[in-house]
Every structure is written in structure tokens, then in C-alpha cells.
Design a protein around this nucleic acid. Structure first.
Lengths: 136, 136
DNA sequence: AATCTTCTTTAGAATAATTATAAACAACGA
DNA sequence: TCGTTGTTTATAATTATTCTAAAGAAGATT
């Protein structure tokens, strides 16, 4: 069980005041055992379901973006009509089941080290992400 | 110089009749030496510039999607407000310069083989794509 | 606790990419 | 040439996301 204090700390670190709405968002995002892949819309609906309270869509967007900026959420590079996020912010990769529109974590050791043998002058590598698309 | 016959063949293979508009689209897409990374909007504007003729946005969308479905174009998985496509449909990866919103090809040998050590029952791997984000 | 300032929430409007529609038009085969 | 079927186009519809501005809540200061 993740404590409310941790949520407040995450919010403060993200320069956000701990409000009732934001705590509810944290409850859905971070009070879990497993990693959580979601779209804003998934999250929006889950908040109502899990906490019984409605939070406006704008607040969900704002809070998710602040957490992403701070590094508490990771954006997953997929071409989908919606943007996917992940509560697992460690260095890892993904399966994407195209048919079911489902994301599955790939541990780093499931993929092995990736060595990029090319460099662009004046630029440095920010991230390396592998997306493995699955079909039936 | 790529011939008009090749364009017509590509169109027919994609179950599209060779119309003036579609030939113009092919001209911009396939009459090039280097690989071409683009968004629909890039393409839409280039058609006007290069051929002097305007093609409606809907036709650009339809044609690009048909080529993509047939495998003459590849969709590049990036989270951007617009969808990116690539005329290089061989197995390869990308740099993405986040600041300049620019894509750069990575040859397969620049990345090395990627071995996926995990499998999902009933699913097979359709593609493995690496996206390397660059920062200053 | 009262007050003041600053930040937050919210509904709804605005924006922007993409998809759908349906009428005018063009390709193709007979 | 004619008839069928596919295509183009402008425009409307849809959808994810961002913006706005007014009402409300948090935090600091007394």
C-alpha cells in the first residue's frame, strides 16, 4: 500500500499543490503492484471507477504532463490515435499487440544491450527505445 | 529518374487506378535518391511546390494509406502531433532529434542485431523498431 | 480564524490531425 | 460511345489535446 505522503511528495516535487483531485489521480497511477500502461482517457475513466469522484479531463492532462516532465511517468512511442504512458520509468522496452492495442513490458535483459554505432555531431543520445509489434 | 511506369505499377499493386493526382503524389514520394521522411502535411505542400498542381488533402491521405497498407511506405513510431512516414521500407531504425523534429535513418548495422528473448503465446513478431531520441 | 495572494479546477471553447460524405468527374471495359 | 465502377474534391464530422477565464481552494501572514 502506497501512502498518501508519497503522493504528496511526488506532487510537490512536480511543483504541484496536493489537492484532492491530484491525490485521486495518484491513487490510480501509483497505488499498484504492477506497471501500468494507459492513455489519458483510460486514466480519466479509472479515476471515476476507483475513487468514486470525478476529476475534470483538463486536470488529468495537466497532472499527467507535470509527472511526465518530472520523470514520474514515461511516454511510450507508438503511433496510435492516443498517447500512451507508463508508470514504469526505468529503462525498458515494449511489445505492442497491434490487434488488441495492448502494451506489454519487455525487461531490458529480454532485449539485450543495444549499441548505437553512429553519432550526430552536437547531439547526444537521450533515450533508446525498442518497440516490438506483435501480430497473430 | 524513376519512370512513370513504375508509379503506375505501384498504384495498380495497391489496387489504385493511376490518376493524374496519384502520379503526382508518386513523383514526390518515389522520384528521389535518398530516403524521404515526411508527414502528410509535408507531402501535401511539396506536391504543390514540385508539380505545380494541387491535390486535395483527402486524396493524399487515401493514397498514403494505401501505399502503407501495401508496404510501399513505412510508418515511423514516434509520439508527435503528426504521423511520420518513410519511403525506406527496409528493416531499419531511426534517430529523432526532438528539438528540431527531424528524423535520421540508422542503418541496421549501426544498431546491430536485436534478439528478443521473450515471446507471447499465440503472437508472433511483426516488426522490431528502435527509436533513438537525440538532445543537444 | 480572517485575509490576501497565488495556484487550481472546471466546463466549455478552440485547435489541429484525421476520417467520412456525397456530388461531380474520370478511368476502364464492352 | 456507353455504362459501370472507382476517384477527386470541398466540406463536414470526429477526436485527441490544449486553451480560457471564472469560481474555488491552498498556503502564508497576521
Amino acid at each position: 500500500m502506497t501512502s498518501k505522503q508519497e503522493f504528496i511528495e511526488k506532487l510537490r516535487n512536480s511543483s504541484l499543490r496536493p489537492t484532492k483531485q491530484r491525490i485521486n489521480i495518484c491513487e490510480v497511477l501509483f497505488n499498484r503492484d504492477k506497471t501500468f500502461h494507459f492513455t489519458i482517457n483510460d486514466l480519466f475513466n479509472l479515476i471515476k471507477d476507483k475513487t468514486g469522484e470525478k476529476v475534470s479531463l483538463a486536470t488529468v492532462y495537466n497532472t499527467v504532463h507535470a509527472f511526465h516532465k518530472k520523470g514520474y511517468l514515461k511516454e511510450i512511442p507508438i503511433n496510435s490515435n492516443q498517447t500512451y504512458f507508463d508508470t514504469n520509468v526505468t529503462d525498458h522496452h515494449h511489445f505492442f499487440d497491434v490487434k488488441e492495442e495492448r502494451l506489454i513490458d519487455l525487461k531490458n535483459e529480454d532485449v539485450g544491450p543495444i549499441e548505437i554505432q553512429k553519432s550526430i555531431p552536437g547531439k547526444k543520445i537521450k533515450s533508446v527505445e525498442v518497440l516490438v509489434k506483435l501480430e497473430d
